[in-house]
Protein backbone atom coordinates (compact mmCIF):
# COMPACT_ATOMS: atom_id res chain seq x y z
CA UNK A 1 0.00 0.00 0.00
CA UNK A 2 2.85 2.36 0.94
CA UNK A 3 4.61 1.68 -2.35
CA UNK A 4 1.40 2.27 -4.25
CA UNK A 5 0.70 5.57 -2.52
CA UNK A 6 4.29 6.68 -3.04
CA UNK A 7 4.15 5.88 -6.75
CA UNK A 8 0.76 7.50 -7.24
CA UNK A 9 1.87 10.67 -5.46
CA UNK A 10 5.14 10.72 -7.39
CA UNK A 11 3.27 10.35 -10.68
CA UNK A 12 0.85 13.12 -9.66
CA UNK A 13 3.78 15.40 -8.83
CA UNK A 14 5.50 14.63 -12.12
CA UNK A 15 2.31 15.30 -14.07
CA UNK A 16 1.66 18.52 -12.15
CA UNK A 17 5.30 19.51 -12.69
CA UNK A 18 5.06 18.80 -16.41
CA UNK A 19 1.90 20.86 -16.63
CA UNK A 20 3.52 23.65 -14.61
CA UNK A 21 6.47 23.76 -17.00
CA UNK A 22 4.17 23.91 -20.01
CA UNK A 23 1.99 26.59 -18.48
CA UNK A 24 4.61 28.86 -17.00
CA UNK A 25 7.78 28.46 -19.04
CA UNK A 26 8.56 31.88 -20.59
CA UNK A 27 7.50 33.62 -22.68
CA UNK A 28 4.08 34.09 -21.13
CA UNK A 29 1.89 35.83 -23.64
CA UNK A 30 -0.20 38.39 -21.81
CA UNK A 31 -3.37 38.27 -23.79
CA UNK A 32 -6.77 39.91 -23.46
CA UNK A 33 -7.54 38.13 -20.18
CA UNK A 34 -4.44 39.51 -18.45
CA UNK A 35 -6.35 42.78 -18.26
CA UNK A 36 -8.06 41.33 -15.19
CA UNK A 37 -4.91 42.25 -13.23
CA UNK A 38 -5.24 45.95 -14.08
CA UNK A 39 -8.97 45.85 -13.43
CA UNK A 40 -8.35 44.36 -9.97
CA UNK A 41 -5.67 46.96 -9.23
CA UNK A 42 -7.96 49.75 -10.29
CA UNK A 43 -10.87 48.36 -8.28
CA UNK A 44 -8.76 47.81 -5.16
CA UNK A 45 -7.13 51.21 -5.31
CA UNK A 46 -10.23 53.28 -6.02
CA UNK A 47 -11.79 54.52 -2.82
CA UNK A 48 -15.52 54.95 -2.32
CA UNK A 49 -17.64 56.44 -3.68
CA UNK A 50 -16.87 54.98 -7.08
CA UNK A 51 -18.69 53.60 -10.07
CA UNK A 52 -18.39 49.88 -10.76
CA UNK A 53 -19.58 48.38 -14.04
CA UNK A 54 -20.23 44.65 -13.91
CA UNK A 55 -21.02 42.34 -16.81
CA UNK A 56 -19.45 40.37 -19.60
CA UNK A 57 -17.85 41.72 -22.74
CA UNK A 58 -20.93 43.84 -23.49
CA UNK A 59 -19.73 46.08 -20.67
CA UNK A 60 -16.09 46.49 -21.68
CA UNK A 61 -17.11 46.79 -25.35
CA UNK A 62 -20.08 48.98 -24.74
CA UNK A 63 -19.91 51.28 -21.73
CA UNK A 64 -17.22 53.87 -21.18
CA UNK A 65 -16.11 53.99 -17.57
CA UNK A 66 -13.90 56.89 -18.60
CA UNK A 67 -16.93 58.91 -19.80
CA UNK A 68 -18.79 58.12 -16.58
CA UNK A 69 -15.80 59.01 -14.45
CA UNK A 70 -15.30 62.32 -16.18
CA UNK A 71 -18.98 63.20 -15.95
CA UNK A 72 -19.53 62.24 -12.34
CA UNK A 73 -16.02 63.12 -11.14
CA UNK A 74 -15.79 59.75 -9.51
CA UNK A 75 -13.37 56.90 -10.04
CA UNK A 76 -14.98 54.35 -12.36
CA UNK A 77 -13.95 50.76 -13.01
CA UNK A 78 -15.12 48.75 -15.97
CA UNK A 79 -14.98 45.15 -14.71
CA UNK A 80 -16.42 43.68 -17.90
CA UNK A 81 -14.21 41.15 -19.65
CA UNK A 82 -16.00 38.07 -20.92
CA UNK A 83 -19.44 36.60 -20.35
CA UNK A 84 -17.81 33.17 -20.01
CA UNK A 85 -16.52 34.15 -16.58
CA UNK A 86 -20.06 33.70 -15.32
CA UNK A 87 -22.16 36.03 -13.25
CA UNK A 88 -21.12 34.34 -10.02
CA UNK A 89 -17.45 35.25 -10.42
CA UNK A 90 -18.26 38.70 -11.84
CA UNK A 91 -20.14 39.51 -8.65
CA UNK A 92 -17.84 37.83 -6.13
CA UNK A 93 -14.70 39.56 -7.43
CA UNK A 94 -16.34 42.91 -6.73
CA UNK A 95 -18.15 42.06 -3.48
CA UNK A 96 -15.27 42.68 -0.98
CA UNK A 97 -14.47 46.08 -2.53
CA UNK A 98 -17.90 47.68 -2.29
CA UNK A 99 -18.04 50.78 -0.11
CA UNK A 100 -20.45 53.48 0.96
CA UNK A 101 -21.78 55.60 -1.89
CA UNK A 102 -20.67 53.26 -4.65
CA UNK A 103 -22.82 53.13 -7.75
CA UNK A 104 -22.90 49.65 -9.18
CA UNK A 105 -24.34 48.96 -12.61
CA UNK A 106 -24.80 45.33 -13.54
CA UNK A 107 -25.48 44.47 -17.14
CA UNK A 108 -25.25 40.75 -17.93
CA UNK A 109 -25.71 39.38 -21.43
CA UNK A 110 -29.08 37.75 -22.08
CA UNK A 111 -27.39 34.34 -22.31
CA UNK A 112 -26.46 34.58 -18.63
CA UNK A 113 -30.11 33.81 -17.90
CA UNK A 114 -30.24 30.72 -20.10
CA UNK A 115 -29.86 27.68 -17.86
CA UNK A 116 -28.82 25.53 -20.80
CA UNK A 117 -25.77 27.72 -21.44
CA UNK A 118 -24.47 27.13 -17.88
CA UNK A 119 -23.06 30.64 -17.77
CA UNK A 120 -23.90 31.37 -14.17
CA UNK A 121 -20.87 29.43 -12.94
CA UNK A 122 -18.79 30.34 -15.95
CA UNK A 123 -17.08 28.41 -18.69
CA UNK A 124 -13.80 26.64 -18.13
CA UNK A 125 -12.18 28.44 -21.07
CA UNK A 126 -12.64 31.89 -19.53
CA UNK A 127 -12.16 30.84 -15.92
CA UNK A 128 -8.87 29.07 -16.67
CA UNK A 129 -7.53 32.08 -18.59
CA UNK A 130 -8.34 34.47 -15.75
CA UNK A 131 -6.92 32.14 -13.10
CA UNK A 132 -3.79 31.72 -15.17
CA UNK A 133 -3.00 35.42 -15.09
CA UNK A 134 -4.48 36.08 -11.70
CA UNK A 135 -4.21 33.09 -9.35
CA UNK A 136 -5.64 35.38 -6.64
CA UNK A 137 -8.98 35.03 -8.44
CA UNK A 138 -9.18 31.56 -6.87
CA UNK A 139 -10.49 33.24 -3.72
CA UNK A 140 -13.49 34.45 -5.72
CA UNK A 141 -14.56 31.00 -6.83
CA UNK A 142 -17.35 29.86 -4.58
CA UNK A 143 -19.05 26.95 -6.29
CA UNK A 144 -17.84 23.43 -7.00
CA UNK A 145 -19.05 23.81 -10.55
CA UNK A 146 -16.58 26.66 -11.15
CA UNK A 147 -13.68 24.44 -10.04
CA UNK A 148 -14.97 21.57 -12.14
CA UNK A 149 -15.31 23.68 -15.24
CA UNK A 150 -11.78 25.02 -14.77
CA UNK A 151 -10.20 21.61 -14.20
CA UNK A 152 -12.07 20.21 -17.21
CA UNK A 153 -10.58 22.91 -19.37
CA UNK A 154 -7.00 22.46 -18.13
CA UNK A 155 -5.94 19.91 -20.78
CA UNK A 156 -7.20 22.19 -23.58
CA UNK A 157 -5.46 25.12 -21.97
CA UNK A 158 -2.20 23.18 -21.70
CA UNK A 159 -2.54 22.09 -25.34
CA UNK A 160 -3.04 25.69 -26.47
CA UNK A 161 -0.07 26.79 -24.45
CA UNK A 162 2.09 23.96 -25.80
CA UNK A 163 1.06 24.95 -29.32
CA UNK A 164 2.03 28.53 -28.59
CA UNK A 165 5.42 27.48 -27.18
CA UNK A 166 6.17 25.27 -30.17
CA UNK A 167 5.15 27.98 -32.60
CA UNK A 168 7.14 30.57 -30.72
CA UNK A 169 10.27 28.48 -30.34
CA UNK A 170 10.33 27.21 -33.89
CA UNK A 171 9.01 30.33 -35.51
CA UNK A 172 6.00 28.62 -37.05
CA UNK A 173 3.70 31.39 -36.00
CA UNK A 174 2.41 33.37 -38.89
CA UNK A 175 1.42 36.97 -38.60
CA UNK A 176 -2.11 36.76 -37.39
CA UNK A 177 -4.90 39.18 -38.11
CA UNK A 178 -6.11 41.22 -35.15
CA UNK A 179 -7.45 38.68 -32.74
CA UNK A 180 -8.52 39.91 -29.37
CA UNK A 181 -7.61 36.64 -27.71
CA UNK A 182 -4.00 37.05 -28.83
CA UNK A 183 -3.78 40.78 -28.42
CA UNK A 184 -1.56 42.12 -25.68
CA UNK A 185 -3.91 43.46 -23.05
CA UNK A 186 -1.97 46.71 -22.67
CA UNK A 187 -2.95 47.65 -26.20
CA UNK A 188 -6.54 46.58 -25.78
CA UNK A 189 -7.87 48.57 -22.82
CA UNK A 190 -7.61 52.04 -21.39
CA UNK A 191 -6.79 52.68 -17.73
CA UNK A 192 -10.48 52.45 -16.77
CA UNK A 193 -10.84 48.97 -18.18
CA UNK A 194 -12.77 49.96 -21.33
CA UNK A 195 -11.83 48.05 -24.49
CA UNK A 196 -10.57 50.64 -26.94
CA UNK A 197 -8.23 48.79 -29.31
CA UNK A 198 -10.98 48.28 -31.85
CA UNK A 199 -12.02 51.92 -32.18
CA UNK A 200 -9.80 52.56 -35.15
CA UNK A 201 -9.97 49.14 -36.75
CA UNK A 202 -12.09 48.23 -39.76
CA UNK A 203 -15.39 46.77 -38.59
CA UNK A 204 -15.52 43.01 -39.30
CA UNK A 205 -19.26 42.91 -38.49
CA UNK A 206 -21.08 40.14 -36.69
CA UNK A 207 -22.55 36.99 -38.14
CA UNK A 208 -26.15 38.00 -38.53
CA UNK A 209 -28.60 35.31 -37.50
CA UNK A 210 -25.96 33.53 -35.42
CA UNK A 211 -27.44 34.61 -32.12
CA UNK A 212 -30.66 32.67 -31.62
CA UNK A 213 -32.02 33.29 -28.15
CA UNK A 214 -34.30 30.56 -26.80
CA UNK A 215 -36.81 31.58 -24.15
CA UNK A 216 -36.24 28.88 -21.54
CA UNK A 217 -34.74 31.30 -19.05
CA UNK A 218 -33.57 30.33 -15.63
CA UNK A 219 -34.02 32.68 -12.69
CA UNK A 220 -31.12 31.40 -10.57
CA UNK A 221 -28.97 34.36 -11.76
CA UNK A 222 -31.75 36.73 -10.68
CA UNK A 223 -31.70 35.28 -7.19
CA UNK A 224 -27.94 35.69 -7.07
CA UNK A 225 -28.29 39.31 -8.19
CA UNK A 226 -30.89 39.97 -5.48
CA UNK A 227 -28.60 38.55 -2.84
CA UNK A 228 -25.67 40.61 -4.12
CA UNK A 229 -27.78 43.74 -4.24
CA UNK A 230 -28.95 43.21 -0.66
CA UNK A 231 -25.36 42.87 0.56
CA UNK A 232 -24.23 45.92 -1.40
CA UNK A 233 -27.09 48.05 -0.13
CA UNK A 234 -26.17 47.08 3.44
CA UNK A 235 -22.73 48.53 2.72
CA UNK A 236 -24.33 51.75 1.51
CA UNK A 237 -24.01 51.20 -2.24
CA UNK A 238 -26.63 51.69 -4.93
CA UNK A 239 -27.16 48.77 -7.30
CA UNK A 240 -28.76 49.08 -10.73
CA UNK A 241 -29.60 46.64 -13.43
CA UNK A 242 -29.23 47.62 -17.10
CA UNK A 243 -29.96 45.56 -20.18
CA UNK A 244 -27.01 45.01 -22.53
CA UNK A 245 -26.46 46.88 -25.76
CA UNK A 246 -27.85 44.75 -28.56
CA UNK A 247 -27.99 44.97 -32.34
CA UNK A 248 -31.27 45.97 -33.97
CA UNK A 249 -31.45 43.14 -36.50
CA UNK A 250 -30.92 40.44 -33.86
CA UNK A 251 -33.32 42.15 -31.50
CA UNK A 252 -36.00 41.94 -34.19
CA UNK A 253 -35.41 38.20 -34.41
CA UNK A 254 -35.23 37.59 -30.67
CA UNK A 255 -37.80 40.18 -29.57
CA UNK A 256 -40.21 37.61 -28.09
CA UNK A 257 -37.55 35.94 -25.96
CA UNK A 258 -36.17 39.23 -24.75
CA UNK A 259 -39.63 40.50 -23.85
CA UNK A 260 -40.30 37.26 -22.00
CA UNK A 261 -37.06 37.68 -20.07
CA UNK A 262 -37.95 41.27 -19.29
CA UNK A 263 -41.29 40.24 -17.81
CA UNK A 264 -39.60 37.53 -15.75
CA UNK A 265 -36.90 39.86 -14.47
CA UNK A 266 -39.32 42.67 -13.63
CA UNK A 267 -41.12 40.14 -11.43
CA UNK A 268 -38.05 38.43 -9.90
CA UNK A 269 -35.36 41.09 -9.69
CA UNK A 270 -35.30 43.41 -6.70
CA UNK A 271 -32.80 45.79 -8.29
CA UNK A 272 -33.60 49.18 -9.77
CA UNK A 273 -33.84 48.96 -13.55
CA UNK A 274 -32.07 51.45 -15.77
CA UNK A 275 -34.58 51.32 -18.59
CA UNK A 276 -35.90 48.53 -20.75
CA UNK A 277 -34.21 46.30 -23.33
CA UNK A 278 -35.28 48.53 -26.24
CA UNK A 279 -33.50 51.48 -24.64
CA UNK A 280 -30.23 49.79 -25.51
CA UNK A 281 -30.95 48.64 -29.04
CA UNK A 282 -28.62 50.23 -31.55
CA UNK A 283 -28.34 50.04 -35.29
CA UNK A 284 -26.16 47.20 -36.63
CA UNK A 285 -23.54 49.57 -38.04
CA UNK A 286 -22.55 50.63 -34.52
CA UNK A 287 -21.42 47.13 -33.61
CA UNK A 288 -17.93 45.73 -34.01
CA UNK A 289 -17.57 41.94 -34.09
CA UNK A 290 -20.47 40.50 -32.12
CA UNK A 291 -24.04 41.40 -31.37
CA UNK A 292 -22.93 42.80 -27.98
CA UNK A 293 -19.68 44.59 -28.91
CA UNK A 294 -20.13 48.24 -29.75
CA UNK A 295 -17.66 50.42 -31.56
CA UNK A 296 -16.58 53.88 -30.42
CA UNK A 297 -19.73 55.76 -31.43
CA UNK A 298 -22.02 53.04 -30.09
CA UNK A 299 -20.16 52.99 -26.78
CA UNK A 300 -20.58 56.73 -26.40
CA UNK A 301 -24.29 56.51 -27.20
CA UNK A 302 -24.91 53.66 -24.81
CA UNK A 303 -22.98 55.37 -22.04
CA UNK A 304 -25.01 58.55 -22.52
CA UNK A 305 -28.24 56.58 -22.44
CA UNK A 306 -27.08 54.82 -19.30
CA UNK A 307 -26.27 58.16 -17.68
CA UNK A 308 -29.72 59.49 -18.64
CA UNK A 309 -31.41 56.52 -17.04
CA UNK A 310 -29.17 56.65 -14.03
CA UNK A 311 -29.96 60.28 -13.40
CA UNK A 312 -33.69 59.89 -13.86
CA UNK A 313 -33.66 56.83 -11.58
CA UNK A 314 -31.65 58.63 -8.91
CA UNK A 315 -33.82 61.74 -9.39
CA UNK A 316 -30.85 64.04 -9.19
CA UNK A 317 -27.65 64.50 -11.09
CA UNK A 318 -24.42 63.83 -9.30
CA UNK A 319 -23.21 67.38 -9.92
CA UNK A 320 -26.43 68.78 -8.41
CA UNK A 321 -26.13 66.35 -5.52
CA UNK A 322 -22.56 67.43 -4.72
CA UNK A 323 -23.57 71.05 -5.01
CA UNK A 324 -26.40 70.41 -2.51
CA UNK A 325 -24.04 68.60 -0.16
CA UNK A 326 -21.57 71.49 -0.32
CA UNK A 327 -24.39 74.05 0.12
Amino acid sequence: MKKFLFNIILMAFLVAGGMGVILYIPPVEKNFYAEILRKYDHLHQSGSPKIILIGGSNICYGVSARQLSEYYHLPAVNMGLNGGLGLRLMLSQVRPWIGKGDIIVISPEYEQFLGAYHLLDGQGSSLAEVLYYSPESLQYLDSISQYKETVKYLPIFAQKRLGYLVNHRFGFRKKLPIDKEKLDYRQAFNAYGDATYHFNLPVPGFGKGNYPLPDNFDMAPARLLNQFSQEARLKGAEVYFAYPGYAQSEYNKNRKSIQHLESLLSRELELKFLGKPDDYIFSDELFFDTVYHLGQKGTQLRTLRLMDKLESERGISYQAQSANEKG
Binding site: V15, G18, M19, I22, Q123, G124, S125, K152, Y153, L154, P155, I156, A158, Q159, L162
Partner: peptide, 11 residues
Protein backbone atom coordinates in the same frame (compact mmCIF):
# COMPACT_ATOMS: atom_id res chain seq x y z
CA UNK B 1 0.89 13.21 -20.46
CA UNK B 2 -0.17 11.96 -23.88
CA UNK B 3 -3.75 11.60 -22.65
CA UNK B 4 -3.63 15.17 -21.33
CA UNK B 5 -1.74 16.88 -24.12
CA UNK B 6 -2.85 14.94 -27.18
CA UNK B 7 -6.43 14.15 -26.23
CA UNK B 8 -9.29 15.76 -28.04
CA UNK B 9 -11.31 17.47 -25.33
CA UNK B 10 -14.41 19.31 -26.23
CA UNK B 11 -16.21 21.02 -23.38
Amino acid sequence: MGVILLGNYSM
